[in-house]
Design a binder for these strands. Structure first.
Lengths: 231, 231
DNA sequence: TGTAAAAATGACTGACCGGTCAGTATCGTT
DNA sequence: AACGATACTGACCGGTCAGTCATTTTTACA
């Protein structure tokens, strides 16, 4: 008996520093990581605390030393996983060139929502919406709205520079967000991804951006040519 | 024993319309409707069979006369609710005019995904994805892919007519689908809907269509004016 | 009205699992 | 080494609920 997984490792080499409290954060992270994996596979209700405990390499009771209950663990897991990398991305300094800036932000967003965690989070949050509405609110605020604001500011800069026309300015960020988000979600769905070939993430983003730029390109001066559309 | 769904019809009784078996379908529909309401509120796991039974006005045991278990009831509820109105829409005869046709199909799709049931179905299906992957496949096939094909055929017709340019032809239906779907989902999320004002469904659709048309408008002839963009 | 079959009922059962806590192991200090 | 203090464990408890089935109600028909 006893636990062979961790015991006996930490030899008392005098005492380098009192790391007594360090393990607390480690344990939490350990449990959170395990929770992500377990919840990702089975969702909030179908996941048993035992499973999380086993994945984390601790006993079930240990989880309750760090989180008051299953739901709180779930919530905290979502919170932390959503926030990973989000802040650093937003706080990156703006470039001088509006176009470069725009491209950089779009790429960051695209990267973020195409990491494998993202669709999982989206699914988990969506799945528990009626039970944990504040979580969905948090998600909407932190992801959808935040990025839309960021995108809009880049787009506005491009409009000021004359790269984009003014015609589609209103809601342009929403459109771009919709295109990117939906494509990321489609890519995460094997049925759809296979059916319409979205495997190459870069290619998909280029395609979306090309479409977006086409919509945003300034109108030609009013030369009223009736039907010059021949191929 | 035997199959209750069809048996007894061939009775040579002189009664002209033996409605003997009519209640069977009624009961099923009754239970399915109640299941939709109950599942919509709490999801697959959190919904108790008792709740569904109470909503349907039957006893719990009765449900098991019509559905083998909870999961099958859930699946069947999704299947039927997804299919409602889908076929009739697709089978409507095509118009002669490509533009009118396009507008009609887009409006149908928009209507479909903005009915209050739709986001609920989307959420439910998304929520149980790892457990019932074939359901998500069904949903993807019946909604996303089917409509994308339909949209693409309308768009192609518009391109042939010169209304849309050829440049963005590839994946145009996917783009439009992404825009419409994501906007419908955002509209169903109170946090987002309130934050960016998407309450007026018609206005939102117009905005999306305007953006889409801007992207699809044929390019002007190649007058290579370098920087004519100054308003 | 009688009666047999079909339909519906809801009390019951047993598996399951979130949460508890008495007990054990480990660590830091003296 | 001895002694708290702290971290961890996992058997256990109790509530819950999907699914069952003996019983009751309804229906069909003579």
């Amino acid at each position: 008996m006893t636990d062979p997984s961790v015991t006996g490792v930490a030899r008392p080499t005098h005492k380098p520093d009192t790391r007594t409290r360090r393990p607390v954060e480690e344990r939490e992270a350990q449990i959170i990581d395990a929770a992500f994996l377990a919840f990702a596979e089975a969702g909030l209700d179908e996941t048993r605390l035992e499973d999380i405990a086993r994945l984390a390499g601790v006993a079930k009771g240990t989880i309750y030393l760090y989180f008051p209950n299953k739901e709180a663990l779930f919530r905290e897991m979502i919170r932390r996983t959503v926030l990973v990398r989000l802040d650093e991305l937003e706080h990156a300094p703006h470039d001088a060139d509006a176009v470069t800036d725009f491209a950089r932000v779009v790429r960051s967003y695209w990267q973020y929502i195409n990491e494998p965690q993202f669709p999982v989070l989206y699914r988990l949050v969506t799945g528990v919406l009626p039970r944990l509405p504040e979580l969905s609110q948090f998600f909407a605020e932190r992801v959808s709205l935040r990025w839309q604001r960021l995108l809009q500011s880049c787009i506005d800069a491009c409009i000021r520079d004359g790269v984009f026309g003014r015609e589609q300015a209103a809601g342009a960020a929403r459109m771009l967000h919709a295109l990117l988000m939906q494509h990321a979600l489609m890519r995460a769905n094997p049925t759809i991804c296979d059916a319409i070939g979205l495997h190459d993430a870069d290619a998909v983003m280029d395609r979306v951006l090309s479409f977006f730029r086409a919509a945003m390109r300034p109108s030609p001066p009013p030369t009223h040519a009736a039907d010059d559309s021949t191929h």
